[in-house]
Design a protein around this nucleic acid. Structure first.
Length: 424
RNA sequence: GUGAGCGUAGCUCAGGUGGUUAGAGUACUGGAUUGUGGAUCCAGUGGUCGGGGGUUCAAGUCCCCUCGCUCACCCCA
């Protein structure tokens, strides 16, 4: 029988990698605490309607990328492709809109999209998500963007480019659509095939086309900023000015467009030069229409999502890791007859907070030494036949090879003192 | 969904125009060193050559199909 492998687009994050994830999530958590975001732990699956109505029926995510199935009770269920819709659902369902505003939530976990895998993209992937719900102030937008940049700053990332734009609101976006269509109408022949299709469906997306032929044309296309209504225009200028006051290195990119229907006003993206073609480590913006789309009252919101895999890829490419994978500090070597003593010793060491491991094999002391060395153990403790008969333990410092034999009940104290000496 | 590249040991890869029993390095286990790691040397374990079919006296090698991986498009974090 053939061995079973992980499904396409999924992968295992093992010890050599998972500590990096922990570092990313811990950093996000510390930023969340400093910015006043509370963690929300939400379901991994939701009613399909939450996404089809929230994200938008016509979007690619809903149209062809969702993991949707009917459960045993006949309900249409979907594995979440993103977190924002769930955040808003939870906010409304728990009546958080009746409490003090705004409500600041953050979360992280796996998301699912049925896509063809490539660098920085998988079918199951993890995101960190920050949301500010219940206020329409542009300063909430500024804070959201600042919080994402703070995460990357604390992680030590560099070479990131922050792009902002506005996608307007239901009042002014139709105007811009028309302006754009007028602009492209006479130049349809210069556009690529997919863009000619986009012309009818979603002309804004033409701006996002990476093909050079379209790029030349879109460079001279009228920018959204000029078509915004007074409210959206003022909002955008405040965000732009506010970020500048924070000293943020932000560029206005009037070609930046978002693919999810719920976005309004501010759209932003953070690009990494150290990723592949999927170069966004972070994407987000304002979504003042989402709450109504999922059947709630009018609730403004702004937030971002950031892919953990993409953050880790960028960190690896930039070599920014501090420290490394946590390693065993003490390895306890045992021989036949000394297992109980070894077991007790690691028990005592761990109770003192010293990362320890003991031998479980019948291998020679030499082989156990080699194993301990490979595990990166700083100290080794030998309890063999000699130590058993004299009630002692031999403690060895792996860095200089020095060793001492002490009464066994003093071994833990000995290691502690050596460890302290090493720390200095 | 579309396109391109790649599938030989746990990992990295050799295997000219088909030709005996498929190799190396590394890793793993053991030994040289009978209670002491990192170095060196020796030995051993480890392969349905991704899978199926075809051509041939003979296929890791050629042909077809299929599966998987990677990168890119679309779209997005």
């Amino acid at each position: 029988m053939e061995a079973i492998k992980a499904p396409k687009g999924t992968y295992d994050v093992l010890g050599s990698e998972s500590w990096k994830w922990a570092r990313v999530v811990n950093t996000a958590r510390s930023v969340a605490e400093d910015f006043g975001f509370k963690e929300a732990i939400l379901p991994i699956f939701e009613h399909t309607e939450l996404f089809s109505r929230g994200i938008g029926d016509a979007t690619d995510v809903v149209e062809k990328e969702m993991y949707t199935f009917t459960d045993r009770g006949g309900r249409s269920i979907t594995l979440r492709p993103e977190l924002t819709a769930s955040m808003m659902r939870s906010y409304l369902e728990n009546g958080l809109n009746h409490g003090p505003q705004p409500v600041k939530l953050w979360g992280w976990g796996p998301m699912f999209r049925y896509e063809r895998p490539q660098k920085g993209r998988n079918r199951q992937f993890a995101q960190i998500d920050f949301e500010i719900l219940g206020v329409s102030s542009p300063f909430a937008d500024i804070e959201t963007i600042d919080s994402s940049m703070e995460i990357y700053r604390r992680l030590g990332l560099s070479n990131l480019q922050v792009l902002i734009n506005s996608v307007g609101c239901p009042k002014c976006r139709p105007n811009y659509r028309e302006t754009l269509k007028k602009f492209f109408e006479s130049r349809l022949g210069d556009l690529c095939e997919t863009c000619r299709e986009r012309f009818d469906r979603n002309p804004l997306r033409i701006l996002d086309c990476k093909k050079t032929e379209c790029g030349k044309l879109t460079d001279s296309a009228p920018p959204v900023i000029d078509s915004l209504c007074d409210e959206c225009g003022e909002h955008f200028r405040t965000v732009e000015r506010g970020l500048a006051k924070l000293g943020a290195d932000v560029r206005v990119d009037n070609k930046l467009v978002r693919g999810l229907d719920y976005y309004t006003k501010t759209a932003y993206e953070i690009l990494s030069g150290d990723l592949g073609a999927q170069n966004a480590v972070c994407g987000g913006g304002r979504y003042d229409n989402l709450a109504e789309a999922i059947g709630g009252p009018e609730v403004p919101g702004v937030g971002f999502a950031s892919g953990i895999e993409r953050i880790v890829i960028t960190m690896e490419a930039q070599g920014v890791f501090m420290g490394g994978e946590p390693q065993t500090e003490v390895f306890v070597i045992s021989t036949a007859g000394s297992e109980y003593a070894a077991s007790l010793l690691v028990h005592e060491l761990r109770a003192k907070g010293i990362a320890s491991d003991m031998n479980f094999t019948a291998r020679s002391i030499k082989a156990q030494m080699k194993y301990a060395s490979q595990r990166g153990a700083k100290f080794v403790c030998i309890i063999g036949e000699d130590e058993m008969s004299s009630g002692s333990a031999t403690v060895k410092n792996m860095s200089d090879g020095s060793q001492e034999t002490t009464p066994r009940d003093l071994a833990t104290a000995k290691i502690l003192s050596w460890k302290e000496a090493l720390a200095k």
